[in-house]
């Protein structure tokens, strides 16, 4: 498998860091391009272009950090901040628009009603992604 364009959606977890390191490793062989995106989900009571200062600050911090992680790996990454109503469709849209051949996502261990849950975003991306998807799961402590 060879990848030339990799999309790494981030939300600020430890798994994101590891996913970015993995993306860098996969990218090295073919000098693939990596994009890291953070999606701000805007509630329907606000216009889509509402600039929510606190959210933007958090997102910028996370993307700064992920850039630093990539730099440590001697790897170049482009970062982007999106605003959308729904996170999952916007990740898929971004993958379509950029014609990526891999989406690499870090997932964390979460429980919902006592069961392990992937949440809403990951299943949607797995179902609708136009390319390969790799999920990176951190070993639980």
């Amino acid at each position: 498998m060879e990848f030339y364009k990799i999309l790494v959606p981030v939300i600020g977890t430890d798994a994101d860091e590891e996913a970015m390191k993995l993306a860098c490793r996969l990218a090295k062989k073919n000098k693939a391009k990596i994009w890291a995106v953070y999606v701000i989900a805007v509630k329907r009571a606000l216009p889509l272009d509402a600039e929510i200062e606190s959210e933007i600050r958090t997102a910028e911090g996370i993307l700064d950090h992920i850039e630093a992680v990539a730099e440590e790996q001697d790897c170049e990454v482009d970062t982007d901040l999106l605003q959308a109503r729904e996170v999952a469709p916007s990740i898929v849209d971004e993958a379509v628009e950029r014609e990526v051949d891999l989406i690499l996502m870090g997932v964390t261990y979460e429980r919902r009603f006592g069961q392990f849950s992937l949440g809403n975003v990951v299943p949607y991306v797995l179902k609708n992604a136009p390319c390969r998807v790799i999920l990176y799961h951190q070993p639980t402590a």
Binding site: D80, L81, Q83, A84
Partner: peptide, 14 residues
């Protein structure tokens, strides 16, 4: 100075 990444028209329209 880090310019903001957010761009007004980088909004996902669905």
């Amino acid at each position: 100075f880090h310019p903001r990444r957010i761009k007004r028209y980088r909004l996902r329209r669905i």
